[in-house]
């Protein structure tokens, strides 16, 4: 099939970007969306043009590197998948796809579709861990953890840090990302020791990075490829209120 693309091109951080149109023919429905971009890029290189830069690595929805908005939807039109997991069978011959980078003040564009998500790392640095050193830990079975808690912690811990939640949020809030981490540790005995300091520090860093305030629209939950639920934000709020006020 034939696919028309309208892609955001931006040379570097300082440059002013704009849209550019491309058309890719002989697209097979078995191809992934990125394989279609690969094809286009190879054609561009052969023609001596600059290929479209986009972040990707695992191409199986787990590393969190990839992330583009396709027709205004973070990671494309499907629910529960990343951009790299999207296949061309989700589109029709002749479709026009508008492909844009994540847009948020805290995710500056580096080039084309590549953005800088260091702000996420800095939030993690501010408290996304249990403060223990290597060695001297008790036997793994010394603390039984109810399966239901372990499973809930896991559900939150599956966040891949892709930033789709921020990208789609009209407030560019990072509450789902932060909420997932805080919830994981709230459910586990290992995380309880530092829960007050952790949540205060992570929220402070989140605010300092310039992410917006959540207004509970729920777009993040709808777009999160790992289907992290809004309950994680409620837990974050509760933990923060408890830590700040009680």
């Amino acid at each position: 099939m034939q696919i028309n693309l309208k892609v955001w091109r931006q040379e570097n951080r300082q440059a002013i970007g704009g849209y550019k149109n491309y058309s890719v023919s002989d697209v097979s429905e078995h191809m992934s969306f990125f394989e279609m971009l690969d094809k286009l890029n190879n054609e561009l290189v052969r023609k001596g043009e600059d290929p479209i830069a986009f972040d990707h690595d695992c191409r199986e929805g787990i590393c969190g590197s990839c992330g583009v908005t396709i027709n205004g939807r973070a990671h494309g039109p499907l629910r529960g998948v990343t951009s790299c997991q999207l296949h061309m069978r989700s589109f029709k011959d002749g479709d026009t796809l508008v492909v844009e980078p994540w847009r948020a003040a805290s995710f500056p564009v580096i080039k084309d579709l590549v953005v800088d998500r260091k702000s996420f790392d800095r939030i993690m640095e501010s408290g996304g861990y249990v403060s223990i050193n290597t060695g001297g830990t008790p036997d793994a079975n010394a603390i039984p953890i109810p399966k239901i808690d372990a499973d809930a912690a896991f559900d939150s811990a599956t966040c891949i840090g892709c930033g789709a939640c921020v990208a789609i949020c009209k407030n560019s809030a990072a509450m789902l990302f932060v909420g997932a981490k805080v919830t994981q540790f709230t459910k586990l005995p290992q995380g309880k020791v530092e829960r007050r300091e952790r949540v205060k520090n992570m929220v402070a860093q989140m605010d300092a990075e310039g992410f917006g305030s959540c207004t509970n629209t729920g777009a993040c939950e709808a777009e999160c490829p790992k289907e992290i639920s809004l309950t994680n934000i409620a837990t974050l709020n509760k933990e923060y209120l408890k830590a700040s006020l009680c």
Binding site: V130, P138, A140, I145, P146, A150, D151, L188, Q190, G191
Partner: peptide, 9 residues
């Protein structure tokens, strides 16, 4: 486990 890795239980 001490780091909070949620292994299956």
């Amino acid at each position: 486990v001490a780091q909070g890795v949620p292994f299956a239980r």
